[in-house]
């Protein structure tokens, strides 16, 4: 035990044996139950941890996606159905007929509607501020 071979005095060798045989009043049956309980609890915990992490990550991704979608939907201006008042329409028709007197009023209104519809045909939606997304 001493790793000292023959140099180790016999009385110290005897002392080592006494030390090896000493008793400690600790660790009864209740302690064993307590430790095994704690070990079982720790054993269950690591298995749950990655699953909980995965769930939390998925929930966070869903919330983020919903949030971005909501903002995009509410903040995007598609410019469909801009209100054009009757006065504006009449003025536009008048200006068209001034430039092209051969147009009938009906034809001028038709051209106006076509121009208006064409103006709303967008390749990409624009936010309300007018800047591209």
């Amino acid at each position: 035990m001493s790793e000292a071979g023959d140099e180790w005095p016999p009385d110290l060798r005897a002392l080592e044996e006494q030390l090896a045989g000493r008793r400690v009043e600790a660790g009864g049956a209740a302690f064993k139950l307590r430790v095994l309980g704690a070990m079982n609890a720790a054993r269950r915990a690591p298995g749950r941890q990655p699953y909980t992490w995965w769930q939390a990550a998925a929930a966070a991704a869903v919330v983020l996606w919903m949030n971005v979608s909501f903002i995009a939907a509410t903040e995007t201006e598609l410019r469909v159905g801009d209100p054009v008042t009757a006065t504006e329409r009449r003025e536009s028709v008048r200006q068209m007929r001034e430039l092209l007197p051969e147009l009938t009023e009906r034809e001028a209104e038709r051209q106006l509607l076509l121009l208006q519809a064409r103006a709303h045909t967008l390749l990409a939606p624009l936010p309300r501020s007018g800047r591209a997304l």
Binding site: G27, V35, M39, A42, P46
Partner: peptide, 19 residues
Amino acid sequence: REDAEDAVQDVFVAVVRAG
């Protein structure tokens, strides 16, 4: 005694957590 028991319990739990 109490500290000794707590220390030993800590070690066993750490072994389980070490995986």
